[in-house]
């Protein structure tokens, strides 16, 4: 059992912490009000009003993460997309481009393997992999535990690469300053309407793999129109992590955000 918050073991694994990581899938963890052998009398049926948000626990963990980031002046971004949009390549290129200018640490979320964290560590940046097992998204609690393993430099940036999934991660606040949704041009331009919750939750949309546009039918303006229909305020940038097209705008967006967060 985790001594920090009392959570039990489950399928989630955080690198370097195989024994203590967990989800709350088994129903027997945390304080249980029905202790075996405890004597009690049966009261009459009554109604208990809760009026509590179902995500209240996650949101409390997210608030704790957010405080932690604020105390160190760290810009935390939650990167979300379908599988295969090029998130990890984009991250690797971003870290390489900002090397020596801005310290970046990474939390990698995938159902299985630590391949992505290894790709990040090859750049020299610290990274921790969270494997969610059967889980389809990262939650704020997992991120809180991953942070215990990750050195965060004051005034730096934390990139949280969520599990590739345009549905579930939309609902779970991790304590980030903003969600960045990555849409690659090899997907359909109608993704913002098919998965509107995610595009509504995001602050910035990166249209990635733009170098492939000459070979595809992808209509960029249509994709942007659809995204703005569900989220009029969403910022949009066209990039190619492979050729470097549009990367300067993205890098300067991060640098500005980091400077505003750290107050420099």
């Amino acid at each position: 059992m985790c001594t920090t918050c009392g959570c039990g073991e489950g399928e989630t694994k955080i690198e370097g912490d195989e024994l203590h990581a967990h989800t709350h899938a088994d129903g027997t963890t945390h304080s249980h009000p029905y202790a075996p052998g405890r004597t009690h009398t049966h009261a009459h049926a009554r109604t208990v009003r809760l009026e509590q948000d179902i995500l209240a626990k996650n949101d409390a963990y997210a608030a704790a993460n957010r405080e932690r980031f604020a105390a160190r002046g760290i810009l935390a971004l939650n990167l979300v997309s379908s599988p295969g949009s090029g998130k990890t390549t984009l991250l690797v290129k971003t870290i390489e481009a900002l090397q020596g200018k801005l310290p970046i640490a990474v939390i990698e979320g995938d159902q299985q393997t630590s391949m992505d964290a290894e790709r990040i560590r090859a750049t020299g940046a610290p990274a921790v992999q969270i494997n969610t097992g059967k889980g389809c998204h990262l939650d704020a609690h997992m991120v809180g535990h991953a942070l215990e393993k990750l050195p965060l430099e004051k005034g730096g940036v934390l990139m949280i690469e969520n599990v590739g999934n345009l549905v579930c991660p939309a609902a779970f606040d991790l304590g980030e300053a903003g969600k960045v949704v990555i849409l690659s041009v090899t997907e359909g331009e109608d993704k913002p309407l098919k998965y509107p919750d995610m595009f509504r939750a995001a602050r910035l949309m990166l249209i990635n793999k733009c170098d492939l546009l000459p070979y595809l039918q992808f209509d960029v303006e249509k994709a942007i129109g659809y995204a703005r229909r569900v989220n009029p305020l969403i910022e949009v940038m066209r990039v190619s992590a492979t050729t470097g097209e549009g990367m300067a705008e993205w890098l300067s967006w991060i640098e500005k955000g980091a400077a505003a967060t750290s107050g420099k």
């Binding site: 049966h42 009459h44 049926a45 009554r46 009026e51 509590q52 948000d53």
Partner: peptide, 9 residues
């Protein structure tokens, strides 16, 4: 997404 109330005993 809220829990409104519980009927308990």
């Amino acid at each position: 997404m809220r829990v409104i109330d519980l009927e308990v005993e």
